[in-house]
């Protein structure tokens, strides 16, 4: 796991417990995410991965424990007090969660409709830049219903980072996508982390996603991913892995360490 000074901590969970519908969903979850780090959260279905992301965003309030974002304890904050913090976080929901009554432009520009109003030209420029980043500028006037699953996920990524967040949360960004589209989404995640220096929490149940994020970096010249450790290159991808089992952290560390772990659940998970 990346060692860092406390002032570089972007997100911190300390002994977080959360019960939903009388069922414990998070149990004594503790971890730390530092600046520019990407942490891949692995786990089977219903292991609490999505709930963990929503707790980081303040959409769920822990029953006990502490969640700190950008050094501020958000556990006891009221909804209105959370909005300025959420404006520094980008979240990509499972299935995208695009507003289906709005065009792609409306979805991506939504963040500027609230307190962060910009002049019209600047707003359009920011939206177009975000859509260019995900390769969807031509779809700007389309409705979400006219887009494929992969395109919707890419628009969701553009919507999440158009406000230039310091932390990105991805909830199963490749779930239900074909391998090629899934690969393009993971490339975008790596690109965003490498080019924009954004920290990220990536929830997935696909081990290969963790492999690509940990072993590859984005090369702006070739506009693609290159292996981090080959041809004498040793690029630090600043990636760590956290494994959840029924709401409990069973592993938190580097991906290579995970392969050496002896825990039966982890061994079963990595096959």
């Amino acid at each position: 796991m990346t060692e860092a000074r406390p002032d570089q901590t972007v997100l911190e969970f300390e002994h977080v417990y959360l019960v939903l519908d009388d069922k414990p969903v998070l149990r004594d979850v503790s971890f730390r995410l530092v600046r520019a780090e990407t942490k891949v959260i692995l786990g089977a279905s219903s292991s609490g991965k999505s709930v963990l992301l929503k707790t980081a965003l303040g959409l769920f309030r822990p029953d006990s424990g502490r969640v700190a974002v950008f050094g501020r304890d958000i556990t006891g904050l009221r909804e209105e007090e959370l909005y300025p913090i959420r404006q520094r976080i980008g979240m990509v929901f499972q299935e995208g969660a695009l507003f289906d009554s709005m065009t792609v432009y409306g979805n991506v520009a939504y963040v500027f409709q609230e307190d962060r109003a910009l002049p019209a030209e600047e707003e359009e420029e920011r939206v177009r830049r975000a859509l260019r980043f995900v390769g969807l500028e031509e779809a700007i006037e389309k409705l979400p219903s006219e887009l494929s699953g992969g395109m919707r996920r890419r628009v969701a990524i553009a919507r999440a980072f158009v406000g230039q967040p310091a932390l990105m949360l991805y909830d199963s960004p490749t779930a239900g996508l074909d391998p090629l589209t899934a690969q393009s989404i993971i490339t975008l995640i790596v690109k965003l982390g490498d080019l924009e220096d954004v920290s990220g929490l990536v929830v997935t149940h696909r081990l290969q996603d963790a492999g690509v994020i940990a072993d590859y970096f984005y090369d702006p010249e070739s506009e693609g991913l290159l292996p981090a450790h080959s041809n004498g290159r040793d690029y630090d991808t600043k990636t760590s892995v956290l494994v959840l089992r029924e709401g409990q952290v069973v592993f938190d560390g580097a991906r290579d360490e995970m392969f050496r772990a002896r825990d039966a659940y982890i061994r079963r998970f990595i096959g």
Partner: peptide
Amino acid sequence: VSEQIDAMRALGTD
């Protein structure tokens, strides 16, 4: 159910 309300809250809207 399609998480649009959560997305709204995440984007700073009550």
